[in-house]
């Protein structure tokens, strides 16, 4: 011990000078993980900034203008916003937008049900059924919309035909013209088209739950519902919230289907905000107004997803703590 103490200073110096490489390597090691972080982020960030954020900021700028497709833009301040909020159809549009977002709940219900069933061990031919579940999402939404127009045609379609012949309805329902039905029909068709998106994500999450958790739950006598609450739900909550958020956003942002089914009518009854955006941008060629509606759409979507977003952030934090 004594000798060690005595040697100590010289010893330290000796080694330091003998190993210059160790000191020189400092920046590399200190930053190596940092380097990885930025390198990994770079493509995503570059992509989002260039392709989404620049147009977005330009859009904010445009919303303060009268901005024709071809020609000189003209600064008009908040006039677009005043026009939009003052328009007769504004509240109709807001109402139907909120209603349309509910199709997410339907999608979730279908997807969760299907994923849970297909995660049961006793089901045979699983992979085939999973493939079948995917079908609605494996076709372009425009095509799915057209097919439903065909099936739902009030005078010629198969749905009305069977409903009538089974005595469920006594007169054809004019799905696309009836102001109430038109709202529900765009919602139902969207649900049918997009639920497999959630299904795939939920199934992947379900499959990652270790069997031991279920065994444990069973040992403690949990019934299926409690098993779902105690084991399944916590494990798929993150995936579920992410999928719900994405679907709300996409249901509201994607326009092809409702536009094709009803063109936003009758009147403004099915003119969800995205249809309004499209109308202003490409039918009216008024980009200032289109972006005004677009920004409102972003705001509305954000408000709708905010609760899920908070749940999601909490989930992630919990996961990190574990």
């Amino acid at each position: 011990m004594a000798r060690q103490e005595a040697l100590h200073p010289a010893h330290t110096l000796d080694i330091s000078s003998a190993l210059p490489a160790a000191a020189a390597s400092r920046p590399r090691t200190a930053g190596s993980e940092r380097w990885l972080i930025w390198l990994f982020l770079l493509p995503t960030v570059l992509f989002l900034v260039l392709l989404l954020w620049l147009p977005f900021l330009q859009g904010v700028w445009m919303s303060f203008h009268k901005w024709p497709f071809i020609g000189e833009p003209q600064w008009i301040g908040l006039q677009n916003y005043r026009d939009l909020f003052g328009a007769a159809y504004f509240w109709t549009t807001m109402r139907v937008t909120l209603l349309y977002s509910l199709s997410t709940a339907l999608q979730l219900a279908l997807a969760l049900g299907a994923a849970l069933v297909l995660n049961q061990s006793f089901i045979r031919l699983k992979s085939v059924w999973r493939g079948v579940m995917l079908m609605p999402y494996a076709m372009p939404p425009v095509v799915v919309g057209a097919i439903w127009m065909y099936l739902l045609d009030p005078d010629l379609g198969m749905v009305t035909h069977y409903l009538l012949s089974w005595g469920i309805i006594s007169k054809p329902i004019y799905w696309f013209s009836d102001p109430v039905w038109a709202k529900w029909i765009i919602m139902l068709v969207a649900s049918w088209t997009f639920w497999p998106f959630m299904f795939i994500i939920l199934l992947a999450a379900l499959q990652a739950i270790p069997e031991s958790y279920y065994e444990l739950a069973e040992v403690y006598g949990a019934n299926p519902w409690r098993r779902f609450r105690a084991v399944t739900l916590p494990h798929i909550r993150g995936a579920m919230l992410a999928a719900v958020i994405i679907r709300i956003a996409w249901n509201l942002a994607k326009i092809e289907q409702p536009f094709q089914l009803t063109g936003g009518g009758p009147g403004y009854e099915t003119s969800v905000l995205s249809i309004l955006t499209y109308r202003f941008a490409y039918l009216s060629g008024d980009f200032g107004m289109a972006f005004t509606v677009g920004l409102l759409l972003i705001l509305v979507t954000f408000v709708l997803i905010a609760p899920f977003l908070r749940g999601f952030q909490k989930q992630i934090k919990q996961a990190r703590r574990r």
Binding site: H11, T12, I15, S16, L19, A22, A23, S25, R26, R28, T29, A30, S32
Partner: peptide, 16 residues
């Protein structure tokens, strides 16, 4: 600090 960790007489503080 740069000289914190030594193993078998070697300063490895900044090694990966």
């Amino acid at each position: 600090n740069d000289d914190a960790i030594w193993v078998k007489g070697r300063n490895i503080t900044r090694l990966q």
